[in-house]
């Protein structure tokens, strides 16, 4: 990554993409549970007031209304923070959206540690787990601003439930905005031969930076798992076959998240050492996003140390 890299948030990308898509697609409607500004849907409201539903602080009602609106061909985007939706309305999502295969897009911001100073109650570190076990559900966790814009477009084109996991803070923009988002395809961002690093979300920027620092001694293959479900098994297995070692990195509990998903696929297909980097069975706390990454050992510096240690421990494997 060059030094001139720009920082922008994935929630900003969402708001901009949604307003743009709303112009060409009259079926798109938006629901908010009293978080229109924070989730960046205010512009959509201004532009299309008739297609905007303010339901108040009532995430369960929001999920039910979204499912009902979807029946006649509308494409509802129900928006909130991850810590409230799907946390507060999982039953409604399971019954009325996943089981009913409703064409509802659940978009939640402030996921991972990005709720920062609001503390552990607002930091969604379990949402991938909650959504990954639901049949019919697609889970998208974009790496940056550019990818989010394309992912929102792909979600509109996909018929069926989609959960998009977004974050609050401005993070590096590094993916190619010209590359269309393909649900279920995980692009290899950097080719390598010594180790596979599977990552999801904006924390990919930290992984990328760590990988660059390890060159040329350690050659990392970095895969962007921006779709967590359905999982791109082929890309994972091909890479693991080549490198023989896999590390996963996520801003999420290692139980049930990307790390678990990767382990499930690998365990059924090949014997390969795996190490999961993420939140290890603990809650967060208040602090700036960068302080939280440092304390949870999730920034480039710590990722580099963990990858190096892992390789040392498995030398000769």
């Amino acid at each position: 990554m060059s030094d001139a890299v720009q920082n922008k948030s994935t929630r900003d990308a969402f708001g901009e993409a949604l307003t743009l898509l709303g112009k060409s697609n009259p079926n798109i409607v938006v629901l908010t549970a009293d978080l229109a500004e924070s989730t960046r849907v205010l512009e959509f409201e201004k532009e299309f007031p008739d297609r905007f539903f303010q339901v108040g602080v009532a995430e369960q009602n929001m999920a039910g209304i979204a499912a009902g609106i979807a029946v006649n061909g509308r494409i509802p985007f129900m928006t909130s923070f991850s810590a409230f939706s799907p946390y507060g309305n999982w039953l409604q999502i399971r019954t009325l959206i996943a089981y009913s295969n409703a064409n509802v897009k659940i978009v939640s911001t402030h996921s991972g540690l990005s709720a920062g100073k609001d503390g552990a109650t607002h930091q969604a570190l379990e949402d991938i787990t909650l959504m990954r076990v639901l049949p019919n559900m697609v889970i998208i966790s974009p790496a940056d601003y550019n990818e989010t814009k394309n992912a929102v477009k792909a979600a509109v084109e996909h018929k069926g439930p989609v959960y998009i996991r977004l974050t609050r803070d401005a993070t590096p923009v590094f993916t190619n905005h010209k590359k269309p988002f393909e649900i279920g395809k995980s692009p290899i961002l950097k080719k390598g031969k010594d180790i596979t690093i599977a990552c999801t979300g904006p924390i990919l920027a930290e992984v990328f930076s760590a990988a660059e620092k390890m060159e040329p001694e350690i050659s990392c293959e970095v895969i962007n798992f921006s779709t967590i479900k359905p999982m791109d098994k082929d890309t994972l297995l091909d890479s693991a076959k080549k490198t023989g070692k896999v590390i996963t990195v996520e801003e999420h509990q290692i139980a049930g998240g990307l790390g678990s998903a990767v382990c499930e696929i690998l365990a059924e297909n090949m014997q390969v050492p795996v190490f999961r980097i993420g939140i290890n069975d603990s809650f967060g706390e208040s602090g700036s996003y960068s302080d939280l990454l440092e304390k949870n050992q999730l920034n480039a510096k710590h990722i580099k140390i963990k990858v190096t240690d892992f390789l040392k421990n498995h030398a000769g494997n």
């Binding site: 539903f53 369960q60 009602n61 929001m62 999920a63 039910g64 209304i65 979204a66 499912a67 009902g68 609106i69 979807a70 029946v71 006649n72 509308r74 509802p76 039953l91 409604q92 019954t95 009325l96």
Partner: peptide, 12 residues
């Protein structure tokens, strides 16, 4: 959960 769903259909 059904009343919310019905509201969605009414809104549509």
């Amino acid at each position: 959960i059904g009343l919310s769903f019905a509201i969605g259909i009414s809104s549509a």
